[in-house]
Design a binder for these strands. Structure first.
Lengths: 155, 155
DNA sequence: TCACAATAGTTTCCTTTTCTAATTATTTCT
DNA sequence: AGAAATAATTAGAAAAGGAAACTATTGTGA
């Protein structure tokens, strides 16, 4: 099977949104911890990147700063996220999950993962490996600019 | 590499949204034919399923009927979609792309595919094949209920 | 066959999400 | 110091999406 980049792109463009749709639908239906998909992704990001700034999160999720600011407002009001001011650069805001936030994230993650896992149980082990490999390939290709910059900086 | 369904699920849950985000961002940035991702998906679906009903589309995209009705309104107003009444069942609405719709879809598709293709050029041919295979695996797992019913019916 | 249930869409109204523009506060650059 | 740049917030408006109620049509069971 010989696949061109264009062909692979077309496939991605067709299949990826349907996965997203299924996940979103599932989260809505089961009200997984009362989180929207976007909120869920924010919590997950903050879990991996404690102390991220508002811009970091906005950039990674793909929202404007004002939108993210309000989204964070809501999460802070629900005591899932802590918002602090950076001591060295007082313009910056530093975000982190509260312990409650970690609990809620874990709960939502379990629910969503359970849904996906159920779907994936139809796959044999070779297919699962293919999927995992594919995700490894995609991951670095679609990291956000800011994230790439961060990784580059670390060197 | 031995992968459990749960592991694969976790990977999917992390990577898929970042692909979606990149595509969405790209479409917004380049104002690809002034289509939102959802509108784009609707056009693509109608291209593949000429004469689909409103419910078909709503179900596939994952919107409620009212929302889809409004979305189609906009596309009809822009003369991208034709809305006709089914002669055998006059409750049903039959949707199809206009020739203008096909042109716009193709333009948007080219732009988005070009973006994805550019990203995927970093992959070697083995990786591309892995990606294509992965999409083949995912496709049937996340098809909508109505679509599954339709496929089952054809037998 | 006729009343009733079911199906397909639409309309109305409301909430939520997200955007743009303007504003504040802070830091960096010259 | 003063100007430009950066980080975040606020204000105001638009857009997306959903629930409920409504219309029109078709199917069904007594």
């Amino acid at each position: 099977m010989k696949v061109s980049p264009a062909q692979a792109a077309a496939e991605l463009l067709e299949v990826v949104p349907s996965v997203t749709r299924a996940v979103r639908e599932q989260m809505r239906a089961h009200r997984a911890a009362d989180l929207t998909v976007t909120q869920f992704r924010v919590l997950a990001y903050l879990n991996r990147h404690t102390g991220a700034s508002l811009s970091d999160v906005a950039d990674h999720i793909g929202l404007t700063l004002p939108s993210m600011s309000k989204l964070i407002d809501a999460l802070v009001a629900r005591k899932l996220v802590r918002r602090e001011f950076d001591t060295t650069d007082r313009r910056r805001v530093t975000l982190a999950l509260t312990s409650r936030g970690r609990v809620i994230l874990e709960r939502a993650r379990r629910a969503t993962r359970a849904f996906l896992t159920a779907q994936l149980r139809q796959c044999d082990s070779i297919e699962l490996e293919t999927l995992a490999r594919a995700m490894q390939i995609l991951r670095p290709l679609f990291a956000s600019r800011r994230e790439l910059a961060r990784v580059a900086q670390r060197k």
